[in-house]
Simulated scan of single mutants.
Amino acid sequence: MRNLPHPIQYQGSKRNLAPIILKYFPQKVRRVVEPFAGTAAISIAAAAKQIARQFWLNDINKSLIKLIEIIIESPDEISGLYSKIWREQHNDSVEHYYQIREMFNRTHDPEFFLYLMARCAKGSVRYNAEGLFNQSPDKRRKGTRPEKMEKNIFGVSFLLKGKCTFSDTDYKKVLQCVAPNDLVYMDPPYQGVCGERDSRYYAGIAFDDFVVALDELNKKGISFIVSYDGRRGTKSFGNPLPDFLNLTKIEIEAGRSSQATLLGRDEITVESLYLSPALLENSPKKQNGYFETGYKTEQFLLS
Rank of each mutant, 00 (worst) to 15 (best):
P240R: 00
D215V: 06
K235S: 10
F207K: 01
S227W: 07
S236V: 08
I205Y: 01
K220V: 04
A213P: 13
T234P: 01
D243C: 09
F210C: 03
V226K: 11
P242W: 06
L214C: 12
F224I: 11
I225S: 09
P242F: 05
E216Y: 07
S236N: 04
V212R: 08
K219N: 13
A206E: 12
T234E: 15
L241E: 06
G233Q: 11
L217R: 10
F237L: 02
K235R: 14
I222K: 10
R232E: 14
D243W: 07
T248G: 08
I252E: 02
Y202M: 15
I250E: 03
E251C: 06
A213Q: 06
K235P: 01
A203G: 07
D208Y: 04
D243P: 08
G238V: 00
A203R: 15
N218M: 05
F210E: 04
I250T: 10
R231P: 03
I250S: 05
F237T: 01
G233N: 11
D215T: 11
K219E: 14
N239Y: 02
F207T: 04
T248F: 05
S227R: 06
D208Q: 12
G233A: 06
T248V: 04
S227G: 09
G230Q: 02
S227L: 13
L217W: 13
T248Q: 15
F224A: 12
I252L: 06
E251Q: 12
F244K: 14
Y202R: 14
K235G: 00
F224W: 14
E251H: 06
K220C: 08
F224M: 08
D229G: 08
I250N: 03
D243A: 14
D215S: 15
I225C: 09
L241G: 07
A206W: 00
F237I: 03
G233S: 09
A206M: 00
G204C: 08
F210M: 14
L214W: 09
N239H: 08
L217V: 07
E216P: 02
I222T: 09
I225D: 03
L247F: 02
L245H: 05
L214T: 02
Y202C: 12
E216C: 05
D209N: 12
T248A: 09
K219M: 11
L214D: 05
F244A: 10
F224C: 08
K220H: 13
D209K: 07
D209C: 03
T234A: 14
S236F: 10
I225V: 11
D243L: 13
L247P: 05
I222S: 05
K220A: 12
G204W: 00
Y228T: 06
G230D: 02
T234S: 14
I222G: 09
V212P: 00
S223F: 03
I225F: 07
V226N: 06
G238P: 03
D209M: 01
G221S: 09
I225T: 10
F237C: 03
A203Q: 15
